[in-house]
Structures are given as C-alpha cells and as structure tokens.
Design a protein around this nucleic acid. Structure first.
Lengths: 338, 338
DNA sequence: AGCGATTCATGAAACGATTCACAAGTCCCT
DNA sequence: AGGGACTTGTGAATCGTTTCATGAATCGCT
C-alpha cells in the first residue's frame, strides 16, 4: 500500500508538505504543488482514513441502526439520512437490528469501536438498556421514531396518538361502528400511542368500548397481517373496518380479504399506516397515515451534525415531533354504508 | 477518550500486557488478567478500531453498494450479505448509488480511503469505468447481479436469459399471442438478457416477431410501471399478456389495469420478476420469476471472505450463476382464454 | 547448587496521517 | 546594511494499538 512517505520521496519533499498539498494547498508554492500532485497520481496514492481518524480522534462516518430494513418506511428514513450526510461529507453505515436487542447491542459496540461521529437509532429494546450503556461512551446520538424522555439527547418522532386519531376518526365519521385495530406488540411506544389515539376517538364519539377490537400482528409484516386478517374474519361480530399498525400489515389483511372473497371497501374498509409506496400501488389503493420518513431521516441527521459540529458547545438537545397526515384512498371511502 | 495507556496505568501493568489480556488472554496470568479486566470495566475502555486497523493494515468492514435500496430485491441481497458477514465478524457498510455513476464513484473512493476489506457491488455505470479505477487500488471485490467477463474478479449473478424464457414460455403455453415486455433500459445487461430469452421463446414457438412488443420503463419503479401500463392500453392491438422487467413495474402495470377497469387475469395476464414479498401480497398475487436474492448476497460475501481470508493465496476467481425459477400465481393462469 | 525450560511481563518500534514550532530564504523599507 | 514581515518547506511529535525481542522470575530436575 502506497503511503504519504512514498509520495514525499517521489516528489522530493517532506511528508509535511505532501499533507499540506492535500489539505491546505494555498500553503504550498504552485510548482511543488504540481510536483506532489503528479507523484500522487503516478503512485495512485489514497490517504488512509484510519490514520487520519486516529490522529483527529473522530471519524467521518455516522451510523444508522434501523429496526427492519425490509420495511420501506425505514428505507425512506435511511435515504433521507444518507442524503443529508453526504451533503456534509459524512459516510453512513446502515445497519439492521431486525428488532433483536442482541443484534442491536452488537452493533452498538461496533459503533463504539469505530468511534463513529454519532448514531441515529430506532431502539429495539423496550427499556433502553443498550442505549443507556452506549450513552456512557459519550457517543452522541439521536433517537429516531421514539420520543425521548431524558433531556440528554435529541429525538425525532411523529405524534403517534394523532396518527391513531386521524385513522379512527376517519372511519367513525364514515359510519363504522365495528372496528378492528390490528396492532403491533405493546412493548413498542408507537403501538401504545396509536392505540391510545384510537381509543380516545371511540370514547369521544360516544361509542361503546366494544366498538374497537384489538388484534396483535406480532411481526408487523405482510405475513403476520395475512394471518391477522384471517383471524378477524372468524370474529363473532365481524368488523366493517380495519385499521392496521402499518402498511405491510394492511397489505396482508387486504390479501386475506381477497382470498376470502370479502370485498374491499364494500364489505370491509382498510386503513394502513406509513404510506409506503406500495400502499398506493396496491390493488385497491390503501388509505394510509403518512409519516414524513425521508424528512425524519434528514432532520435527525441535521441534529446529529449540529451536535457534533464546530459550534457544538451551544447545542441544545431537542425533541422534534412531526405531525402525521391522513391520505384517503379507495380502500376506505369517506362515507360508507354496507 | 480513555485509551489502553490509561487502563495500563490503572491496573499497574504495561500497555503490552493490556493488549495481551484483550487479544490472547492465555498469555497472561489469571490475577493480572483479572486486574486488567477490572480496570477496563471501571474506565469503560473501548478499543479504537482505527488504531487497530492502522496497525493491522486492513479493516474489518466490507462494503455493499446497491443500485436501488428502495427495491426489495436489493434489500434481500443486503440481508444475505449482512448475515454472512456478521457470522465472520465483519461489519457491513451498506450504500446506495441510486443508479448514479457519480454517486458510485464517490462511494468507491470512500471505500478506498476506508481500506475496506472488500466490496460487493452492483455496478451503475455500463462501461465499468468506476470499477476499473477501483481495481487499480487492489481492493478485492465481487460483482453482484452481473456476469463479469474478466478473470480478475468473482461475480455472482442469475441467468437472465433463462428468466426471460421462463416467463414468456409460460405465457405462450397458456395461449397468448400478443405479449408486451415492459423492459428497463437496454444499457443494463439484465434487461438485454431477459429480452434475448423472451425473443428466443417467441421465435422457437414459431410466432411472428410482432407477437412481442417492447416498451421501456426507464426507472423500473412502480411509478414508471404505472406509466407504461397506461401506454400499453393505448396500443393499436392491445396485448393479452404483459411481462415486466421487475415486480415494481408489474405492480404499477397491475394498478394501471385496475384503474382502467381492465381485469387481471381475465383480460390481461401479468408476469413480474424478482418475486419480492409484495408480489405475492398484491391484490391479484403476481406470477413472478424468483431470484435467490438472499443467497446471492450470502454467496457473494462468502467469495469475498474467501478471497481475503488466510488461505487467499489459493483463491480462484469464480463466476457463480444461479438459476431463476418461475412462481405461478393468480395473475397469469397456466391456461388462458379470453 | 547449577542449569535449562517455562511462564509472565516489559518497552520500544512500527502503522500513516496531521500539526506545529522552527528554519531558511526572499522581499521591502528605512 | 540591517531588520521586520512574509513565504515556503522541514522534521519531529503525536494519536492508540499490536507485536516482538528481551529480560526477569520461577520451576523442576540432576
């Protein structure tokens, strides 16, 4: 591997000069600069990031740890983050915990060893033990898609209660009185909050609590949605509307309806969450609660950069909360009658 | 930041000993080992990957550069690669070129600076200029989803001609004589090969060349599929079957059919490619040509590890070619009549 | 007691870049 | 001519780890 020393020898200058040519060309006279540049090209020199980093004490890479890379929502977050990071000359290390706290822990210690500039993380363990130990290492990070209670770090999230409200209010207004909420595990704050929003609407509308039945789709994937879909068809009083914790689950439910010959939206209306591209691309385009995923990724990265930038001294930890938005499509008309 | 020196001082030993405790504990007597371990815990010491890397001359990270992270096919490749890499104690840096050769070039030089162990890449530039310059840096890499002509590197790909054949043969046997192929740009080898396979079947079946019309969906996304779908509805002699270059395009076409009130598969049959999860989750589950994406990622990583491992001397560059498989679903019944 | 073998720990030399105090040379001005 | 200012380049120290030659201590054996 050719090093800066080889370049220096070739160009007949000291290593310091080569470094200057690379990092502050104006310090060097034009002709030595030309000589050094020529040597660099001839030798195919590439500077070693690890050496720079060792010297500088900080790296030029940030990490992004998502819960499920197969979910387009997180892919959008990642794209937003990557765009923003690349603008700031930072590389992004994108990793997938797959909801597994053990994998999460493994990655966090990898990040610590790499001395990443900071990390964006969608936490997999409910109690935040991993994150807490990560914090001890003083590595700055930003919570994504979870409000953070402590004042010690930034977070970017979406108001999930409002999301739950939007979806269920839409259904109630359309005339539904038998609604199933296919939720994810309640260990996730998002799921708890969406349920809270949904329940509140039921209550405020003066409907009995039984108007809302909750099923769980543990994995929050298409497959588990399909499964929940067939379960809900077997319920004693079959619902006329289904609200799903995300679009993957909603697509699964939609398919279960098709398979069973249940028409959407005539027999059952469906509302999803996230508004991934595939929601609008579905056979019956899905009504969905849109989350600004790309912007979340961007904003989270901005916060991280601010926290680790030159003027980091004056950085105030913040909690950015985005508002979701309901996108009504064919799967749940505004006015419904059997 | 606490370094190995601090640990040494705290434990009252030399830095060499601390290093030994971490890397070859058996060299150290049990009680000094205990003292050192205690010091490490108390101080929260985390070893610096960049220092190790500088010393070792090689890193413990590999890179994966995909064409389009929004495409579930590549996500599966990434998951396969990540699984395999993690098993070998390697981190994965997952990046997205978005089909842009400029972005690709940027990432490649980032990888070179990072001295990644190696890279898996789905090349974005047709002529391979970026890759060629990367090769000069001696960084080992494996081509994914493209057969490589030179003997200087490994590649993992899928036989796209066979894929095109499978799809179109299926349609021809079902009785279709007016088929549209919604292809991607012919600059991509995959697109050329699938077209070749498709054409061959038409010819072998004794059908006229006009039996196969080719449209282009430039972006190969749902949106461009939707667009192609409405275009093909306006064709002089409307096709009875559509073969799409990937499932995203197929989903777009499917939706265009729904919107126009054209029934699938009664009026038009559809066949996709990749067999992503959303293909089977579609309203009308899509027939698709399945590619072993996860295994491709795994295999590519295995090749890379073999190339960079201890016994790398005896590494022979290889071209692994997987065979695709047709999965027939509701969107294209085996026997079709109008 | 003497001697080789074995066990443990040490300290210095790398790895490749950046930075900084300093030196040498040039220029301008009085 | 002398001296301050500026330009340009140098060389050594530094970052945190691993490795390796070396040394000290202990042990077992004759």
């Amino acid at each position: 591997m050719v090093s800066i020393k080889d370049v220096a020898r070739r160009a007949g200058v000291s290593v310091g000069t080569v470094s200057n040519v690379i990092n502050r060309p104006s310090y060097v006279s034009p002709d030595t600069r030309a000589r050094v540049t020529a040597a660099i090209d001839e030798l195919g020199f590439v500077r070693s990031e690890s050496a720079r980093q060792l010297r500088a004490g900080r790296s030029r890479t940030m990490a992004l740890l998502v819960l499920d890379i197969a979910n387009p929502f997180f892919v959008d977050v990642a794209r937003g983050a990557e765009r923003e990071a690349r603008g700031a000359g930072l590389g992004v290390m994108l990793c997938n915990s797959g909801h597994d706290p053990a994998v999460e822990a493994e990655y966090l210690s990898l990040f610590a060893e790499q001395r990443v500039r900071g990390a964006l993380i969608t936490p997999a363990d409910a109690n935040g033990a991993n994150v807490a130990s990560f914090r001890r290492r003083k590595i700055p990070f930003v919570m994504v898609d979870r409000v953070e209670m402590s004042d010690e770090l930034c977070s970017v999230s979406i108001d999930d209660e409002v999301g739950g409200e939007l979806a269920v209010r839409h259904l109630v207004r359309a005339g539904h009185t038998q609604i199933v909420f296919v939720n994810g595990p309640l260990t996730l704050a998002q799921c708890r909050d969406r349920l809270a929003g949904a329940s509140r609407v039921i209550k405020d509308a003066g409907l009995p609590a039984e108007a809302l039945t909750v099923l769980e789709a543990e994995q929050m994937t298409v497959a588990s949605g399909r499964d929940a879909g067939s379960r809900l068809l077997g319920l004693a009083n079959r619902p006329t509307a289904v609200f799903c914790v995300n679009d993957l689950v909603a697509l699964g439910v939609l398919q279960a309806m098709f398979t069973a010959g249940v028409r959407v939206p005539e027999d059952v209306a469906i509302v999803g969450y996230d508004d991934i591209e595939f929601a609008s691309a579905a056979a019956v385009p899905l009504t969905s609660v849109r989350q600004p995923a790309f912007r979340m990724g961007q904003t989270a990265t901005e916060l991280l950069i601010e926290e680790t930038g030159e003027d980091s001294a004056e950085h105030q930890h913040r909690r950015v909360v985005f508002q979701p938005e309901l996108v009504v499509r064919a799967s749940s008309p505004a006015s419904w009658r059997r």
